[in-house]
């Protein structure tokens, strides 16, 4: 299947005559040196990735790593310096102003860290704003806005104003506004960073539920590893504007690409993220095994009970094919070890 979003060699350089940097030896300089030499800041450096339809793609990095700039480049809220972006197979950088507006109106919606709600409009009219500027008649856009408000659990609050709502509810309005035009792609720019932890967890559950219900393609920016691991089908780690690693949560935790990623994931409990594939071993010759196998996709934690109680090692299979076996020794080592696991 063709990717929903394809980003190739994307650069964003801020500063005087930013265009001269890319494609010259200057581009290879480290960030600080580039800044000292040219006064330019390379916020996004040579980034390429694809996002599949229906996927939740998380971009993670510390503040200043360029992740917010990256997501704004996708719909050219920030104009990229060079590189290619295509959404739904269409090159975004070639779009004229009218086509670009249309893309923002119908195909790609965004949810912001600081909500960006309009304080002078009631909740209903905030949600309907996107439809209003498309020229949708009033009755119709209010009906649609009411529907998405119900979807995010805000029915009954239609006629309140944003400042009468709590932070979590305001972000639900932001979410509803993004959903109102039924876009194919939703971009989230650290949407829950401004919320307190309990509400953040609620909202993450909400996003998971919505993703299951409406099946959009999601690009999610966060600096919170736990959030990235819970939400992401795949995670891209960004450092100083460069992609360090793109992979599943398992890939990141099991096989960090470098010490930066390894540092990031150091405190993640492995057994919660890794699957049996990462800790199985080859069966010995003529070794007797349990009859009922475990799938190689089983998360370690979920297999603890069976493995520890079994008398013999349990086979790990991918469909009909046996990949290896798992026994109590391996399991114990995985549970207590903080050492890096090597994939089998």
């Amino acid at each position: 299947m063709a990717p929903m979003i394809a980003v190739t060699d994307l650069w964003k350089v801020f500063g005087p005559r930013a265009g001269r940097i890319v494609g010259t030896p200057l581009a290879d300089l480290p960030r600080a040196e580039l800044r000292a030499r040219t006064g330019c800041l390379a916020a996004v450096r040579d980034v390429s990735f694809d996002v599949e339809p229906g996927e939740v793609f998380v971009v993670m990095g510390l503040s200043g790593s360029g992740k917010s700039t990256l997501v704004r480049c996708l719909t050219r809220l920030i104009e990229p310096t060079s590189g290619e972006i295509s959404i739904g197979g269409e090159p975004v950088r070639a779009m004229g102003p009218k086509r670009l507006r249309d893309l923002r109106r119908r195909q790609v919606a965004m949810v912001f860290q600081h909500f960006g709600l309009l304080p002078h409009r009631q909740v209903l009219d905030n949600v309907a704003y996107g439809l209003e500027i498309q020229g949708v008649p009033r009755a119709e856009r209010h009906r649609k806005a009411g529907e998405v408000l119900a979807l995010v659990g805000l029915d009954g609050h239609e006629h309140q104003y944003p400042d009468q709502l709590s932070g979590g509810m305001q972000q639900r309005v932001g979410l509803a506004r993004a959903l109102a035009a039924d876009p194919e792609v939703l971009l989230f720019d650290e949407p829950f960073s401004a919320l307190d932890p309990l509400i953040r967890r609620d909202m993450q559950a909400e996003v998971r539920r919505l993703h299951a219900e409406v099946g959009k393609t999601l690009v999610f920016i966060t600096h919170d590893l736990a959030e990235a691991l819970t939400l992401g089908d795949r995670i891209a780690v960004l450092r100083d504007g460069e992609l360090v690693q793109v992979g599943t949560p398992e890939d990141l935790v099991g096989a960090p690409a470098d010490s930066y990623v390894a540092d990031f994931v150091r405190d993640v409990p492995r057994s919660d993220v890794l699957t049996l594939r990462w800790i199985m071993r080859d069966p010995g010759p003529d070794e007797l095994c349990e009859d009922e196998p475990l799938s190689h996709r089983t998360v370690i934690r979920d297999a603890v009970h069976r493995v520890m109680r079994a008398e013999r090692p349990i086979p790990v299979v991918d469909g009909d094919r046996r990949l290896g076996v798992i026994d109590a020794d391996r399991m114990l080592a995985a549970l207590v070890s903080h050492h890096r696991q090597v994939p089998a």
Binding site: L77, R104, R106, F115, L118
Partner: peptide
Amino acid sequence: VPPTAVEAATALGSTRWQLLSKVRLPM
């Protein structure tokens, strides 16, 4: 006028005129 509101309205595909009449002036 807070830039966040302007950015959000831009991301929804507002024209310059819509940004002025529906976001900047009311705010």
